[in-house]
Design a protein around this nucleic acid. Structure first.
Lengths: 115, 115
DNA sequence: GTCGATACATAAGAGAATTATGCATGTAAG
DNA sequence: CTTACATGCATAATTCTCTTATGTATCGAC
């Protein structure tokens, strides 16, 4: 399946984990495909997560104990639900703060107000 | 020479070109090392450009016609001054707008106000 | 005379994404 | 009824950008 380019491909690097954790924190139990749709909706079509980035990222977050999974059968289709853990919740807080700091720094370097 | 880690290494990916172009637009003629010091100063020590990233990036921008160079001998030391071109100036405008859009999008996805 | 700062540059390696591919089900249109 | 698109998972090959490491060399201070 074709996946169109995102709005700012390079800028998004490094933000994927933060996005996944935050969306899961805000929306509770979600599965991969559902996350891509939610992010697409929130970003008004500007962030289109690719499977090649999404699934490895989810697996990594799970391996690190930041997410928990639960596999469910819907008819004959497999669905893997993800939930954020306590550890994940504390990390997402840090990540959002870090992102805010990053914007502050960039604002100073680029001499631009981002308000 | 050792180069300490930057504040948010992953987040910075993709912003290097924008930083270089904008700093050169704001400060006129500058050489590599001078740029690292200026960026360090503007970012209050949070962005420490490494040579391995800086020089290839400058060479690439030059090859693309976004920067012009002028080599000068200071005593026995070589210095390569960079100036932003007209093409470069129009690109930096776009890049800053793009970065602003990126923040807006991230703000919507993370449901956080970045003001 | 040695260390740290100044000043350039390239190569090897790592990390995170894109692109491509694979498998499989559900459903709407023609 | 078959074809295309959406749903749903996953991994492999490749690309891109940066870090880390290395190399060369000048200058000033101690």
């Amino acid at each position: 399946m074709y996946r169109p380019l995102m709005h700012s491909p390079e800028l998004l690097k490094g933000t994927l984990q933060t996005i996944l954790l935050k969306v899961l924190q805000d929306n509770g139990k979600m599965y991969g495909y559902e996350i891509t749709q939610k992010v697409k909706e929130l970003s008004v079509g500007r962030i289109l997560l690719t499977e090649g980035a999404l699934y490895p990222a989810l697996h990594k977050l799970e391996a690190e104990g930041l997410l928990q999974t639960e596999t469910v059968l819907i008819g004959k289709r497999v669905r893997k639900y993800y939930t954020i853990t306590v550890t994940g919740k504390s990390l997402v807080k840090e990540r959002v703060i870090e992102f805010r700091e990053f914007i502050k720094t960039m604002s100073a370097v680029l001499q631009v107000q981002f308000a």
